[in-house]
């Protein structure tokens, strides 16, 4: 019977180093600056409103993925975690999307929601 060695260090060796962490911190900062850039470009009329929203959403999704994959170690960790996180996260996204479509695309009854 193989004895169970409780190596707590087990999953560290394939983890990123502090250098990587700081590098990702810099990338996240740059992405945030780009997001703000998108907002500014919309303010001064370079971007159409829809374009800015799209660009900002994509950038924010990239930041989301970076933090979850690296800082929360999902990229290096057991797939079980990915499962228990991804299912509700996908549900939440779908719920937001469904209500957005019901209200802003299909234009629900009741109140009329126009941008004031």
């Amino acid at each position: 019977m193989t004895s169970e060695t409780h190596e707590v260090e087990h999953d560290i060796h394939d983890h990123p180093t502090n250098r990587t962490y700081i590098l990702i911190g810099i990338v996240l900062t740059v992405l945030t600056l780009l997001e703000i850039g998108g907002y500014v470009l919309e303010e001064n009329g370079t971007f159409a409103p829809g374009t800015a929203a799209l660009v900002i959403s994509v950038l924010s999704a990239a930041k989301f993925i970076l933090v979850v994959m690296f800082y929360m170690h999902l990229k290096f960790d057991s797939r079980v975690f990915t499962g228990v996180f991804l299912f509700p996260a996908a549900l939440a996204t779908l719920a937001i999307a469904a209500l957005f479509v019901l209200y802003h695309v299909l234009g629900q009854q009741g109140n009329t929601y126009k941008l004031i």
């Binding site: 549900l91 939440a92 996204t93 719920a95 937001i96 957005f100 929601y113 004031i116």
Partner: peptide, 17 residues
């Protein structure tokens, strides 16, 4: 995720309202 998702969904529904 679903707690915040619902809050965000409500924010989006009422955006501009």
């Amino acid at each position: 995720c679903l707690l915040f998702g619902t809050l965000i969904a409500t924010y989006m529904v009422y955006k501009g309202a």
